[in-house]
Amino acid sequence: MRVLGLETSCDETGVAIYDSDNGSLSHALYSQRVHAQYGGVVPELASRDHVLKTLPLIKTVLSESRLKARDIHGIAYTAGPGLIGALLVGASIGRSLAYALNVPAVAVHHMEGHLLAPMLEEHPPALPFIALLVSGGHTQLVRVDGVGSYEMLGESVDDAAGEALDKTAKLLGLGFPGGARLAELAMSGRTDRFRFPRPMTDRPGLDFSFSGLKTYAINTLKEAGDQPGTRADIARAFMDAVIDTLAIKCRRAIQQTGLRTLVAAGGVSANHELRVRLDKVAKEMGAMVYYPRLEFCTDNGAMIAYAGYRRLAAGMSEPLAFGAQPRWPMESLRPITE
């Protein structure tokens, strides 16, 4: 079965084709640049860009796979969570294209896409596992017993880790979205100059809180004065706090659930230092960590095509209508039965 996947939940248009016999055949991504000048994603501009880019990207992946639209057996589109107007672009094109091709369509939960992304790798994780979903929109620890069978173990009570990275980067003058630049700047910072708190690690539980760290960063900059190197040292302390906190909670989740398989996915899971740290935690705990390849950490169509394939293969499909759910609890998803 070949499934076309469309991802338009935020500021990236992602399109891909997954083939159940041959894996991911082709994927294409367009990262919107229009938002940088506004210091954050402007929903209306995101929607306008998606409606320009989705079909051209579909054409790209079809031609790269040497396929015609008629060779597609099903279509998956992200229906939430995310920006409603942006989601509706992928949903309208995806559902209607499926109608015209007379194939089934399925609405996919964006975070289910992320947590299944490591399944596209050569050595996929075995169920059940713990998933650390860490991106610009989410920071969650989820127990995964099967596709669609999720239990939220903990999540951020305020900013997502990636969001805190981007906001702090902006405060340090690194532009938007500057999370990756902040991580890079941290590489040249001193580890012994500042120490930031590890939020919510001093109490039991698996929830996160990252919004205080950006305030801590800006206050530190004010107090220390803006000498050369100070911003890099702050970036270092900030990254250490985020990575440490994520690692502490992952260790706790492994202890609490008794599961020995951890999946880390989402944009922040591409961070090399985080991966090194999680690998270390896993080794100490006798566990294994699985990651998506770097290009499938950020939003992409391949993970949506794959999640859609799993649901279509289980016989699920949408009626002749579409919609979007800006807020959509993962626990409300229908588990697939195999």
Binding site: T54, A69, I84, L88, S92, A98, Y99
Partner: peptide
């Protein structure tokens, strides 16, 4: 209405591309 316009355009894009 912007959202309505995109729903219309998206539906027509999908059907036109498929046909």
């Amino acid at each position: 209405a912007f959202t309505g316009l995109r729903i219309g355009a998206g539906v027509i894009q999908g059907i036109a591309f498929g046909t």
